[in-house]
């Protein structure tokens, strides 16, 4: 009865003619909706639910290789809290996410503003800009690795030609910091296109009349950008930041392809994703690897919750 009382208080979204004792469809439509949803639901449970539970289960065991191993409870998790290697990789990943997301958002915004200024060229430029995004990351990773090669790489050649002599034969992958510069460049190059196109879409929804009005009132370009354009696209901007943080946290391919051994030199580019891989497929410690994966899942779930919230606010 309570439900009915509620329903009466709120105006219905759409007026559905109430037919007392109406057709089977109206009476059972909830049940049928469920029936029609079942196939999709089964697939989702199969491809997401089951593996997820499997990883959780595995993380509570001392699995080696293909064996599930003995049940050890939360031992892997309590170990992780004090594990220097894990904590270092987590910190590294956070810095990596912050750095690459900030840089790619700024660049993407610049590209989007440019596209917005050149509406006639936007179509063509859009295609050109999308190319890096469409390229397989392993392939582009190998190309970037070559471009940053100490002896034959075009990056060192370019920097040396510009007068930076110290880059003659400079080894980018000899230290973690410079290796991250190389990997980060590749990663930012890859993700800017998608962000730029999305931001361009958002920019085109900004009412030109508002911008005109501001200009008439004497506002400069920078002021218009900071006070009008950015606030108006803020919801989209925030959603993109969250989405791109999620994908940045999961970065694996560029580090894997560009460093020797993966995460090297000497663990200095070891992100959590790489550590998970090394633990699971190098050391074959499946249980511990599963535990690391679950901790990553928690971080990503938190980010996803933020995303969900933001996108709901965006719709209303």
């Amino acid at each position: 009865m309570a439900v009915r009382a509620d329903a009466r208080r709120q105006p219905p979204l759409r007026r559905v003619p109430a037919r007392r004792g109406g057709g089977w469809l109206a009476r059972d439509h909830r049940r049928y909706a469920l029936l029609f949803l079942l196939p999709a639901l089964a697939v989702l449970i199969g491809v997401i639910g089951v593996p997820l539970l499997d990883v959780l289960w595995l993380s509570l065991h001392d699995g080696r290789g293909v064996e599930t191993g003995e049940f050890v409870g939360f031992e892997h998790y309590t170990e992780l809290v004090t594990d220097a290697q894990y904590l270092a990789s987590l910190l590294r990943t956070i810095v990596w996410v912050a750095g690459t997301v900030a840089l790619s958002m700024v660049l993407a915004l610049a590209v989007a503003l440019l596209l917005n200024r050149l509406p006639r060229w936007a179509g063509l430029l859009g295609i050109v800009v999308l190319l890096p995004w469409a390229m397989p990351r392993v392939a582009s990773g190998i190309i970037w690795k070559w471009m940053f090669n100490d002896q034959y790489g075009v990056v060192n050649w370019l920097l040396t030609s510009l007068g930076f002599e110290r880059f003659d034969g400079f080894s980018w992958f000899a230290q973690g910091e410079t290796a991250f510069v190389a990997i980060g460049t590749a990663s930012v190059w890859q993700r800017v296109p998608f962000l730029a196109i999305a931001l361009y879409g958002a920019l085109s929804t900004v009412d030109r009349a508002v911008l005109e009005a501001a200009r008439v009132d004497g506002a400069g370009s920078l002021r218009i950008l900071l006070r009008i354009t950015l606030p108006m696209i803020m919801p989209v901007l925030l959603i993109l930041i969250v989405l791109s943080s999620i994908s940045s946290f999961n970065s694996f391919d560029y580090v894997f392809v560009m460093t020797t051994p993966a995460g090297g030199p000497n663990h200095e580019t070891e992100l959590v994703s790489i550590l998970t891989w090394v633990t699971g497929f190098g050391l074959l410690e499946q249980g511990r690897a599963a535990a690391i994966a679950v901790t990553s899942l928690l971080v990503l779930s938190a980010l996803t919750a933020v995303y969900y919230r933001l996108s709901r606010e965006e719709r209303t």
Binding site: A174, Q175, T260, P261, A262, G263, G264, P265, N266, H267, V278, F281, G282, L283, L284
Partner: peptide
């Protein structure tokens, strides 16, 4: 095979070089 796959034999040399 596991020892090789961890990459630690290389990491150790890198650490000394570093």
């Amino acid at each position: 095979g596991g020892v090789e796959a961890t990459g630690e034999l290389v990491n150790a040399l890198h650490a000394i070089i570093g």
